[in-house]
Amino acid sequence: MKRFFWEFLFIVFISIFTGMIFNTFYLEGINLKKFNPAPNIKKEAKGLNIPVLNLTGAKEKFDRGAIFIDARSNEEFKKGRIKFSFNIPSGNEEKFWEEFSQFCPPGSNEEIVVYCDGKDCHASLNVAKFLKDKGYKKVYIFTGGWNEWMEKGYPIEWE
């Protein structure tokens, strides 16, 4: 049994050692302290030609009656969401979109604001891209998402 453990520790040790050495000399190595693995939504959205909104911009759209789409999972959506939001979870877009499309068909001129948790989540981008591909013209991403909206005390609802 002891042998199992020591052999395993040895493999872990040489893996750490090789990883560090390789990463130091590899041209595409990671800067351990500087590299940020969180998705850069703003940059990716710009590449897809989707405008990005901050909290103020999102609240303005909300007050003007824009449609809000929650790109988080259905469970999270039920626990709490921006008031009057629809749910189109990332990864399950097609199924949830069918219901939404009856309310707001593709090609519509309605302003649509997509959000997820906050700055680090990728779901809003996936859903915004999906809606653009479906033919919706005015799609925005609210990067602050549910977290910022809730912290500010803006209108929410839940089931």
Binding site: S15, G19, G29, L32, F35, P37
Partner: peptide
Amino acid sequence: KEVVNGIAIFLPWL
């Protein structure tokens, strides 16, 4: 991010 980067360096070698 340091933990994530560390895992990304070490795990493939493991």
